[in-house]
């Protein structure tokens, strides 16, 4: 009897620990991210400012993503135009195609898909690069030369991600709208004037603001998550591969999670 009593709580405790393990891990993970983010925040104000490295990263995140973002933007706009036209034709509201596409591009599609493209291309690249630098002691070497790896490696990447994703999202929006125009006006022969009129009528400044706010936050989140997985990579070459995968997966999850939070804060349903 006495034995049983001592056993039972420990068994429950073990299973409770198992049950809460993912939650504990998630909190730990957020802690790691917050720590790295805070440290980068502090270091970005300290001299020397590393403009050279920043320009490299702006080029890597921004310029090198232009083609991909245009491609995906164009198709997204076109697909959306076809789908909306199909749906709206039933009640004779095809003329709204331009406006509806513009609305969904600016509020959702442009920031979310751009962030995902950047995660897949630049985020994975960052995780692989930083992970390799960790595995081959290059990060340690920076430290021994009294150069802060956070300042030298993380800060320029975070700034580049935060600046470039909104720019790319605007590009995505423009190209996507072009795609919708192509489908609506050129292929489905909707009236050009009405198409553009509906765009300006339905699209509000607030929609563009929401899209840009999202893009800024996604850009920061995707780069921070990608950098974190590379920077703290463990276990040699295999670890680098794992870090790259995790960087992309968690960036994408992070984008959707944040998307819900921001949308509920910024959308006035009343």
């Amino acid at each position: 009897m006495a034995e049983n009593e001592t056993k039972t709580p420990s068994v429950t405790r073990q299973s409770l620990e198992k049950l809460f393990e993912p939650a504990v891990r998630a909190i730990e993970e957020l802690g790691t991210l917050a720590q790295l983010g805070f440290s980068a925040f502090v270091w970005q104000f300290r001299r020397p400012y590393r403009f050279g490295v920043l320009v490299q990263q702006l080029e890597f995140v921004g310029v090198q993503s232009i083609f991909l973002v245009c491609l995906v933007g164009l198709f997204t706009g076109m697909v959306f135009a076809v789908q909306t036209a199909y749906g709206f034709r039933r009640f004779g509201a095809e003329n709204l195609v331009g406006g509806v596409v513009a609305l969904s591009l600016s509020r959702e599609m442009a920031p979310v898909l751009t962030a995902i493209m950047v995660a897949a291309r630049a985020g994975s690249g960052m995780a692989a690069q930083l992970g390799n630098m960790r595995a081959t002691e290059q990060i340690d070497a920076l430290e021994t030369m009294a150069v802060s790896p956070v300042q030298y490696l993380i800060v320029p990447r975070l700034i580049a991600g935060t600046l470039m994703v909104p720019v790319l999202a605007l590009l995505f929006f423009g190209v996507g709208l072009g795609g919708a125009y192509l489908v609506g006006v050129v292929m489905l022969s909707l009236d050009q004037g009405v198409f553009m009129d509906r765009v300006t009528a339905l699209l509000d400044k607030r929609d563009l603001v929401q899209g840009l706010v999202k893009a800024v936050i996604f850009g920061y989140a995707v780069t921070l998550i990608s950098c974190r997985h590379g920077y703290y990579a463990k276990g040699g070459a295999e670890g680098v591969g794992l870090a790259t995968t995790r960087a992309v997966v968690w960036s994408v999850v992070g984008v959707f999670f944040l998307d819900y939070i921001i949308t509920s804060f910024m959308t006035d349903m009343g």
Partner: peptide, 8 residues
């Protein structure tokens, strides 16, 4: 460093 640690 044992493994050189050159910046690649």
């Amino acid at each position: 460093f044992q493994k050189y640690a050159l910046f690649d």
